[in-house]
Write a protein that binds this DNA or RNA. Structure first.
Lengths: 175, 175
DNA sequence: CGTGTATTTCTGTCTTTACTGAAACAACTG
DNA sequence: CAGTTGTTTCAGTAAAGACAGAAATACACG
């Protein structure tokens, strides 16, 4: 597949941002490609389009699947695995938030709980203990909050918070 | 400063998570240290406590200042710079969100706008153009939404969204 | 059950980033 | 204004991560 200029620009940009988003360039590029393509692609096609090693594509697709950002589909009469991602940006957002929370927040919540359950916490300064407690509570609240927010539709969320309905309207999907 | 076991555990954990949060280990460790200490520390003290090079501390403090997560304070009768961070976790959260948005979102919003303004967009597939547009709109909405959410107190936020007041109450600061 | 095709795993290389220690710089102090 | 203390910059090194290419594996089909 030959990318048209703007699509290429999008894919390359996504790749550059990948490292800031906690995934490597190739993973981000592949995701961008699947998203823009809007149809299942096989690994070979991805390899050629992006100009990276076939093995790299394989590994990256594995990682995308671990994020639930890509799934395998089969086309009739074709032995090869094909991959697709959701084209619903809100759906993608939810998956990314879930993935990041799992990688960036959950381990800390666990560690903080262990800190507070450890009898040695009694030896720490009162202020230190208090701040660790507060941090854990904050994390728990934020998790609850984000769960709640991801459950409801973004339009509802905007309305609830009294954010201008104008933007909200323009956002509503065509379907 | 000699760290007690739990405080050390906290600082080391924060450091390990740093890379997932988009800052390096030392930066994250220093921030954890300042947070737990709850009082201004000078660079030398940080160096000794963490066992890293003095220059590394200097660089990392610069980065923390770039995030607005640390500020210089002076103690009377002491020539040295001292550094402190907020001990208000909600305040810290807001600063971190602001910093991450600036690094992780804003460049993409700019790039997408450029894509859509480029006349070459006309040559792209209809679906591609639509998805790029949708993505930009989504990002703009999310920015508005997060601005809105960061403005109000977390307790209010919880209430607005109808999240159990129980957790919210336990969170309320002692002060 | 052998052959061709698709896919993954592995090993080494390259790139990037973090970090140290030394040197340069800046700012106070007597 | 020389000495002292504090801070930053810089060059080289070490560690981590990403990636390519080869080898190995799995799988479908006759």
């Amino acid at each position: 597949m030959e990318l048209k200029p703007i699509a290429e620009r999008f894919v390359l940009h996504w790749g550059e941002m990948g490292s800031r988003w906690g995934v490597n360039r190739t993973v981000a590029q592949i995701h961008a490609l699947l998203y823009l393509a809007g149809r299942p692609l096989d690994a070979e096609e991805i390899t050629e389009t992006l100009g990276v090693a076939r093995s790299n594509v394989s590994t990256s697709l594995k990682e995308l699947q671990a994020w639930n950002l890509a799934r395998v589909v089969h086309l009739r009469g074709d032995r090869r695995d094909h991959f697709e991602t959701s084209t619903d940006i809100w759906e993608l957002f939810k998956l990314i938030v879930a993935g990041r929370r799992q990688r960036e927040i959950d381990p800390t919540a666990v560690a903080l709980r262990e800190c507070l359950e450890n009898p040695a916490i009694a030896d720490e300064d009162e202020g230190t203990r208090q701040r660790i407690e507060e941090t854990l509570k904050f994390i728990e609240i934020m998790c609850t909050l984000s769960d709640e927010m991801l459950r409801i539709r973004p339009e509802t969320l905007m309305k609830t918070l009294g954010v201008s309905a104008k933007i909200s309207k323009t956002f509503r999907k065509k379907g």
